[in-house]
Simulated assay, not measured.
Amino acid sequence: MAYGISTYAYFWRISARAPRPMTLPGMLRDTRALGGEVFQICDYPEIETYDAAQLADVRALADDLGLTLELGTRGVRPDHLLKYFDMARQLGVTLVRSMMNTATHRPTPAEAIALLGESVPAYADAGVTLGLETYEQVSTDDLVTVVRGVDSRHLGVVLDPGNSVARLERPADVVAATAPYVVNIHVKDFAFTRRDGWVGFTYAGAPLGTGLLDYDGMIAAVDAARTPGAPGVNQIVEHWLPWQEEGYEATALLEHQWTQHSISTLLRSE
């Protein structure tokens, strides 16, 4: 097990709102400076434009910094997953996170099982694990059905229980249902706050340890469900940080502070 940071912890600093968006090398160096051991390049479309030389440069930098790399994308179509498999091999990645749906494809569980059956064997043969993330577009029951249906040690669940609240699934229930299949964890705290005038709520991120995430309970459940001798599960910091009214500088500073707090908290938990 190792602790790391995702591109989602740099959401605003790599966005079009940033005067000078952080680069991938910049995020890798920042992760190392903060004490992270893993960097997950997640939903970062620019990586798909990299040629072999650029991917080699990213891998070399990660090696120099002592970082393990992971990848993240969306979808279960074989051609897309095999494209990420090829990138994973070039980057030395052994964990690729994906999601069931894309903007143009929403497979049924049966269809997803069939499609994953075309790509997961290649991942397994190379020792690369594919993880499907919990989120509101797909019920946790359906996600587990797909993982069990493919029945491979190299297909599992990326656990992020806060995502499923929008489906009215309790985080504790999501953790309990997926614990035996978890291969990666996104550590992201969350909370509800009342809107002005007490008209509804805002559901957004919170600094780790201040929101509704039962971090200790989540980790205990996953640890208890692990098969003896199975590889450890990396924990990756993410955020749902709302844009700050004061503008970019205030938002970027708070994003950095949340990231620093989260990774420091995880490292102290060892």
Rank of each mutant, 00 (worst) to 15 (best):
V174H: 02
M218F: 02
E255S: 04
G26M: 14
L55H: 04
M27K: 10
V93D: 00
A88Q: 02
P171M: 03
G211H: 08
A56P: 06
H105K: 09
S152D: 08
G72N: 03
A124N: 02
F85C: 01
V128L: 04
T68Y: 05
A112K: 01
M27E: 09
T23N: 15
V237Q: 00
A225P: 08
F39E: 03
A176T: 15
P78L: 13
A126H: 06
V187T: 10
Y181I: 11
V174F: 04
R59P: 02
T145F: 02
S119V: 06
G149F: 01
E111C: 09
S152L: 05
Y123L: 05
Q260H: 11
T108Q: 10
Q235W: 03
A2R: 14
G26P: 14
L116N: 02
L213A: 00
W198R: 14
D214H: 03
A103V: 15
L81Q: 07
D63M: 09
F85N: 00
Q54Y: 03
R194W: 13
A33S: 15
T227S: 13
P207Q: 11
T145N: 09
D216A: 15
F85V: 00
A224Q: 06
T94V: 14
M22P: 14
A2W: 04
D214R: 01
G92E: 03
D57A: 15
L115V: 03
A52R: 11
F85G: 01
S269T: 08
D142H: 14
E136H: 15
Q137E: 15
M22T: 13
M100S: 11
R32K: 15
D79C: 07
A224H: 06
A221L: 10
M99T: 13
R167L: 15
A110M: 12
G131K: 00
T73N: 08
R17D: 14
E37R: 08
D142L: 10
D151S: 12
